[in-house]
Simulated scan of single mutants.
Amino acid sequence: MAQPDWGLDTEPLSLASAPVPEYGGGSLADLLPTLASGLAVPGCAPAMAELAPADRNCVFLIDGLGWHQLAAHAADAPFLASLMASSRGGTGRPITAGFPATTATSLASVGTGLPPGEHGLPGYTVRDPGTGELMNQLRWHPWTAPHVWQPYPTVFQRAHAAGVHTAQVSAPAFASTPLTKVALSGGTFHGRLDGGDRMDLAAAQLAAGDRALVYTYYSDVDGMGHRHGVDSDAWRARLAEADRLAARLAEQLPPRCALYVTADHGMVDIAQDELHRIDFDEDWELRAGVALLGGEGRARHVYAVPGAAGDVLAVWREVLGDRFWVASRDEALAAGWFGPVVDDRVLARIGDVVAAAHDDVLLIASQREPKESVMVGNHGSMTPEEQLVPLLEVRT
């Protein structure tokens, strides 16, 4: 696949200008299959040829740490910043998250090794075709069977079945969530509240097998970005903590090991004014013909009432087309936004209209989504600040 052009146009938007993620060779979905291939796990291919095989592999995912944010705050994360020049197997390049650039979608891509169109978690909130209601894919409906919603085995499950020592080390609250079940299960889950304890245990798990695949996670960078923004003192403090944790883990790596530090998405700060925050709940034009509004402020799924999809597309393009890439479902699929393949079971989860922010703008819903509508830091779209994430490497 040709490398996307991550420069943003200044002319009126066309769908051709949207920088589609590097599915198939440079996205989050390609990481674990490549590592597992080096461990001789059946069914896993080395999609990222620039990554040399290792007997022991660890993925440390820092939620919300985009490539551009790390570069802009290198002084706050000296260890991580020192690895940027050799990111992505020595190329000095980032990888892409996938669309939408949001946690549920990205973690499913990491764990399954599949793009969103196949694993079927194509947004923050999406329509459940079985009920006709929106489902938050971080929280889920209690009546939704996780392995019906996402039926594919994870790479961790494949690795465990192939005799690889496999473990996840994360906060205890994530042990049995539906997202963990469908995206990150396989081997053993170890819950630790303290970040330092997680790093120590991840290193111990790597040493526990001649072949090992270990995943660990830190969420606070994302949380502080949402609440305070990606240039706030609170955000920078959490970045500095993530840097210390990564260095702590790197110092304890056993022999024949590769550590990869990556992220699920970047983030952009959006000003708290009407110019930058368009309120769906206060705009009768945008609401006309819309049955459900899904996704999030920078990556919207729009579900039309029956027979109104064409009209909704026309209005959304007229109102938002100079600030958002606005596509019909068929256009988004043809452009590869959700990957080269979209399973039939996933089609109705994707909006009749899909809108991805190009400018520093947010489509909020102040009444339906009061908490999300006031967040400072946001993500979801295909801009470089949201899409590009590091793939930093330490080897022993």
Rank of each mutant, 00 (worst) to 15 (best):
D5L: 02
W6H: 08
G7P: 00
G7A: 10
D9T: 15
D9N: 03
L15T: 08
S17H: 12
L28I: 13
D30L: 01
L31P: 01
P33S: 00
L35D: 03
L35N: 02
L35F: 08
A36Q: 01
C44R: 09
A47V: 07
E50I: 04
A52W: 02
A54I: 06
D55H: 10
V59D: 05
W67A: 02
W67F: 02
H68P: 00
A75R: 15
D76Y: 12
L80E: 12
A85V: 06
A85L: 08
G89W: 05
T91D: 03
T96N: 02
A97M: 02
A97W: 05
T102I: 14
T105I: 01
S106F: 01
G111D: 08
T112M: 09
P115Y: 05
E118P: 06
Y124W: 15
D128L: 09
E133F: 03
L138E: 10
P142T: 09
V148G: 05
Q150Y: 03
P151T: 06
T154I: 09
T154E: 10
A161L: 12
G163R: 10
H165R: 15
A171E: 05
P172S: 07
P172T: 06
A175I: 04
P178H: 13
A183Y: 10
G191A: 04
G191P: 11
L193N: 10
D194I: 00
G196M: 00
V214N: 03
S219T: 04
G223F: 06
M224V: 04
M224T: 13
G225S: 05
G225P: 03
S232A: 14
A234R: 12
E241M: 03
A247E: 14
E251R: 13
E251Q: 14
Q252I: 00
P255M: 07
C257W: 05
T262W: 07
G266L: 04
V268S: 12
V268R: 15
D269H: 09
Q272W: 09
E274L: 13
H276Q: 11
D279R: 14
W284A: 15
L286F: 14
A291S: 15
L293N: 13
G295E: 07
R298T: 02
H301N: 03
V305Q: 09
A308E: 12
G310V: 05
V312S: 00
L313W: 01
R317P: 02
E318H: 11
V319H: 11
V319I: 11
L320E: 05
G321P: 10
D322A: 14
D322L: 02
W325K: 06
A327N: 10
D330R: 13
G336L: 06
G336F: 04
V341Q: 13
V342M: 05
V342N: 06
D344R: 12
D344H: 11
I350H: 08
G351E: 02
A355Q: 10
A355R: 10
V361Y: 11
I364Q: 13
A365G: 13
S366Y: 03
E369W: 15
E372P: 00
G377T: 02
N378E: 06
G380P: 10
S381Q: 09
S381A: 15
M382E: 03
T383A: 07
P384I: 06
E386V: 09
Q387L: 14
V394Y: 11
R395I: 08
T396H: 13
